[in-house]
Design a protein around this nucleic acid. Structure first.
Lengths: 227, 227
DNA sequence: GTCTATACCACGATAGAC
DNA sequence: GTCTATCGTGGTATAGAC
């Protein structure tokens, strides 16, 4: 898998990316044959190889197209907030909202892949293929570093290990929430009605994550109200 | 995909299930060739079809072997705790621990597939295939209903919608935490050292989830200490 | 430079002979 | 329970039309 950015220039490339995004979500990467993909895109079988080089390179292009702008928006959001705060550290809730906002709002942005891409993304964090996980990790790395620094400034008293675990939990909650939008109904017989309202979901999720981030730390169990 | 339980009787079946569990985790379902699987198990290529009927039925057997006992243990744990409490509702932390305990402890139980199965399971909640998600959902249903009832008793004042969302978030955090054990290092450059210590992980996760479950509800943002 | 038709070769699952 | 043939399908490569 090459790490070269592919900026779609031609209609054909865009059509291939759109079809890939949808089919990868529905059937997975391995489960999506190039023949079906190209038929759906209305292009010739050989077009993928011509424009992207290989199936793996196409997968990468699919993620780059959405994820790079998304993480750029995240970093821009937190940069702006810090500037407005004038040197004061941000609150955990502000940081969390700067992170989850761009992802959740894309759910409603059907022009940019919308819920479809978001679900694909949420699932791919735990893809079986090491290469694909590495790809996603690499695409996230700059934003992750930026947010980790922000959390460290906001919570200077929290041990580094603890913070890493809690970021891990928070990221997992977000990832699953995105991936599972309208999929498994694991909680028997329950389909929350407002699951497509991005603003409500953002508020619910932020509340949950802020509480988790600030939860009492190990060894301080009795101080439940102190956090 | 049939919904018939397959209880392994023969050495051959066990060897196939063991190999499948490992390879499904490493390469995914679609990405695991039957040839490789049977070679790894030391059995003939046709043995899978003979013993299980198809690849899909094998997948189901792989999950049933571990998940049915696991959810039975969960229900037993909460039944026992409620009995001990003598009619009093359990605390949220007790319920959460009864749920996450059996899963996390399996990480260290290498005789029962251990971390390997747990990671496979965590990833499969968001599998592309609708049939597979339905399978997992069905296997979880009894335990889910049981725990939802316990939460409702513990938190009678919480609106039903709110509870469903928070169970969803909690389940997601658990699922991702399990699936991502030693996978993506999304939080750049950070590898918590104690990630294989199930007891520590359980304590950390429980603390995070309890806080999230009890987080201030929407519309009550100012009452942050009141939950 | 962009697109198409088609060929290639490897590999998958399965079925039937043993 | 095993071996092997078969047939469908996978991704990719190429040659040539526009």
């Amino acid at each position: 898998m090459t790490l070269r950015a592919v900026k779609p220039r031609h209609e054909t490339q865009v059509r291939i990316l759109d079809a890939a995004e949808e089919l990868f979500m529905q059937h997975g990467f391995e489960g999506t044959p190039m023949r079906l993909l190209t038929a759906r895109a209305g292009v010739n079988l050989a077009a993928v190889n011509y424009h992207f080089g290989s199936k793996d390179a196409l997968i990468e292009a699919v993620f780059r197209r959405r994820l790079d702008p998304m993480n750029t928006a995240r970093i821009a959001a937190i940069d702006r907030m810090e500037k407005e705060a004038g040197g004061q550290p941000l609150s955990p809730e502000q940081i969390i909202r700067a992170f989850i906002g761009p992802g959740l709002r894309m759910i409603e942005d059907s022009r940019n892949g919308g819920r479809n891409f978001i679900r694909l993304l949420g699932r791919t964090y735990t893809d079986p293929s090491r290469e694909i996980r590495a790809l996603i990790g690499g695409l996230y790395a700059p934003a992750m570093e930026r947010f980790k620094a922000a959390f460290e400034r906001a919570l200077p008293q929290m041990p580094r290990d603890e913070l890493v675990w809690r970021m891990h939990f928070m990221f997992g909650t977000l990832a699953y929430t995105l991936a599972a939008t309208d999929t498994v109904q694991l909680i028997a017989g329950c389909k929350p009605e407002d699951r497509y309202d991005a603003r409500l979901l953002e508020a619910r999720l932020a509340s949950f994550l802020v509480a988790g981030l600030l939860a009492p730390q190990l060894g301080a169990k009795d101080a439940k109200k102190a956090a």
